[in-house]
Design a protein around this nucleic acid. Structure first.
Length: 481
DNA sequence: TGCTTGTTTTT
DNA sequence: AAAACAAGC
């Protein structure tokens, strides 16, 4: 091989794997002994506002770390297929490596691109870095995909314990060629409203280091009480790793191993490890469902739900997005979402159930709002979880499970600290009425400085009536089926 | 990973 | 009077 041939670079295409450690495509690129060019292409018009903010900061961190190794991070914008091909031709690249994605659009784009690059004589390889198992590997005993979580989880636990994470390449050789790149600021990822970014910045530290730090903090603090406390939004017992996983700043198998190791070493009470790993398994299950049902984000998994009589009241939907439903636990969740880019898992279920069952708004409307506002917005988890709540999904909640937002608040936020934090205009109410201000005597409301309909909304629907209406609506499905 | 209503049991 | 239980949604 002559010099020119030896100098043809390797392109490592970063997508939802914005990390250096445990990154198989990067490790492969490092072993290619060619100068490296890192690439990110912004081609996803489906990114929500919160994930755009995250991506901006995560790319900034990744770019700094790569620069420390002398590797340029080239930023491009446009259809990924065209951008990758043109960079490969511009730079006379010999190899292109990436880690797989699993959404239908991504799979189609990647397989087409792989074919074109290979036809042009390049070596192209893809790897698994974002899941514990490939969605096509796990099979029921009869050979098909799983549709129920528990058997899926048992199979995963029994047969697919992930291999040890691989470490970060110690040295990388970067290309010194001058290659045109957008500046990060030109990608226009930051929100127009600076207030929104302030709330996000106060809660999160995007990037690989932030992800590791979050994992360490969780293992030191929340992990030992995870099973008992994960449902209490004020307890701080959850890992908060979901947005880091969403962008691949940490791999699920590193989380799996770190938690297993910590549980073995540190006398973590029985059950916590299993419960935590099963939540990772829910993420895997969502990807399993999406892979085998590519229209999961748009179509009811159970087609009989196509006949569901949604009400789709626009005013009610807007009240929900603003956290002005008149049910404090729902409003606290929706405001937490707006202010911090996340919502506690228990409260997500309550708020989603309220939109679907109390307001009879199509789950797709809720999913769309979450996609725009959650920093962890993930096509697989978001679609699968909304369908789960709606009852239209795989292994879904039964239609008659209708959360009572008053009782759920009292049960899971018993001292009201979560609700008082995000609905401060009710902070002066005693615990007894915090989740049912509409039942409080005038004197109690006056003392707390609350005027229903003015300082805080009256309930936009009556729970009892809404419950009966929902049961009736769901009845039409079983009658039709 | 529920709620409601009606009934029975316990204090 | 309250708590526990059962059944249907």
């Amino acid at each position: 091989m002559d010099d020119a041939e030896q100098n043809r670079p390797t392109i490592i295409w970063f997508r939802n794997d914005l990390r250096l450690a445990d990154n198989p495509a990067l490790a492969r690129a490092a072993s290619s002994r060619r100068p490296l060019i890192a690439l990110h292409v912004l081609d996803d018009c489906y990114l929500g506002g919160a994930t755009r903010w995250w991506l901006h900061h995560s790319l900034a961190k990744l770019g700094e770390r790569l620069a420390g190794h002398g590797v340029p991070l080239i930023l491009r914008r446009g259809p990924a297929r065209e951008e990758v091909i043109s960079l490969a031709l511009e730079t006379r690249a010999a190899n292109v490596f990436w880690n797989r994605r699993y959404d239908p659009h991504g799979i189609a784009a990647d397989s087409d691109l792989k074919e074109k690059l290979r036809a042009a004589g390049l070596v192209v390889e893809s790897f698994n870095s974002n899941l514990i198992t490939e969605p096509w590997e796990v099979k029921t005993s009869s050979g098909g995909p799983f549709r129920v979580f528990t058997p899926f989880w048992k199979a995963l636990r029994a047969h697919y314990v992930p291999a040890k994470p691989i470490s970060e390449p110690s040295t990388l050789e970067g290309s010194t060629a001058s290659i045109p790149s957008l500046r990060l600021e030109d990608m226009d990822l930051l929100p127009r409203k600076p207030d929104w970014a302030n709330g996000l910045r106060g809660t999160w530290c995007p990037g690989e280091a932030g992800a590791r730090d979050r994992l360490q903090r969780f293992l030191a603090d929340g992990f030992a009480q995870y099973a008992d406390c994960r449902d209490f939004p004020a307890a701080g017992a959850t890992s908060m790793l979901s947005p880091h996983l969403r962008f691949g700043e940490i791999s699920p198998r590193r989380i799996w191993h770190a938690a297993s190791l910590a549980a073995a070493r540190r006398d973590i009470p029985e059950g916590n490890l299993d419960k935590f790993l099963s939540e990772l398994a829910w993420r895997e299950f969502s990807y399993h469902l999406l892979f085998h049902n590519p229209d999961l984000p748009r179509e009811n998994f159970q087609r009989k739900f196509d006949a569901f009589p949604w009400a789709n009241n626009e005013a009610a939907f807007r009240a929900w997005t603003k956290g002005r439903t008149g049910y404090p636990i729902v409003d606290a969740g929706m405001r937490e979402l707006w202010q911090t880019g996340t919502m506690h898992n228990r409260v997500r279920m309550i708020a989603a159930s309220f939109l679907i069952k109390h307001l009879l708004v199509d789950w797709r409307k809720g999913a769309e709002w979450f996609r725009d506002t959650l920093v962890d917005a993930d096509i697989a988890s978001n679609s699968a979880s909304w369908q789960w709540v709606a009852g239209s999904g795989a292994d879904a909640a039964p239609y008659f499970r209708i959360f009572n937002p008053v009782l759920q608040g009292e049960k899971f936020d018993p001292d009201g600290s979560y609700t008082r934090r995000f609905v401060p205009e009710l902070a002066g109410l005693p615990d007894r009425y915090l989740f049912r201000p509409f039942e409080a005597p005038e004197s109690v409301l006056a003392k707390a400085g609350v005027t229903l309909g003015k300082t805080y909304p009256s309930p936009i629907v009556d729970h009892g009536l809404a419950r009966d209406r929902a049961l009736q609506a769901f009845q039409t499905l079983s009658a039709a089926a």
